[in-house]
Amino acid sequence: MELLQHFLLSLLSTVRDVLPIAVILFGFQLLILRKQISNLRQILVGFVFVLLGLAFFLEGLEQALFPLGKLMAEQLTAPEFLGLTDGGDGDWKHYFWVYVFAFAIGFSTTIAEPSLIAVAIKANQVSAGAIGTWGLRIAVAIGVAVGISLGVYRIVTGTPLHFYIIAGYILVVIQTLFCPKSIIALAYDSGGVTTSTVTVPLVAALGLGLASNIPGRDPLLDGFGLIAFASLFPIMSVMGYAQLSEWRARRARMNNERS
């Protein structure tokens, strides 16, 4: 009974999120385009599926995965676990498991991110299958995983965030020059889609936990920035993936010509 009540609340808040979007879409459709929507029934049913799906998804995350994930982030960053209580010097190497956790949670939450699945489906369709949905998703997930691990390292060492980000920008620009033109827009997009429903709450908990437990860090100032890392590194990994597949295709072609 309580479960049902909770679910209805979550459904209500999803409806509230979707409502402005629906108003804009149907408002422009009816007032400006003034055209009958073909397959209106199918689209409305689709919207209902999206609403229900999102409500179930968020409800389940909040009931099961978020509390446990946040608890683990707290436990892994607790002073006792990090060995900070018995006179540890807070050297960055003490945090081995935190890095592994950051990498693993970054990778696994990105694989489950619904908006990335959506973009991967579209990219696969548009490229007529040349861009595999799994190839793209795994490339993005590796980027997020590396980004978050590096972001954790930054919190541990307390180095300024903007140095990393600016260095990242320079790398992105260099990679852009050498990367197949067709992938560039998609690579840039993949930076923005990785961090939404699943990743943000868990990663934010990790950042805040670290920044509040490591001596000399202020959660308000140092706890931020992980999301920025998670949106920058996929750009590099997706372009890298494209460069790698292009290089492999070229090599295969050369081998074929030789034989």
Partner: peptide, 18 residues
């Protein structure tokens, strides 16, 4: 719930949003 929600969402995406 998460599994069911994700499946419904992806299905609705292809039917409605796209």
């Amino acid at each position: 719930l998460v599994v069911l929600g994700l499946a419904l969402f992806i299905h609705g995406l292809k039917m409605g949003l796209f």
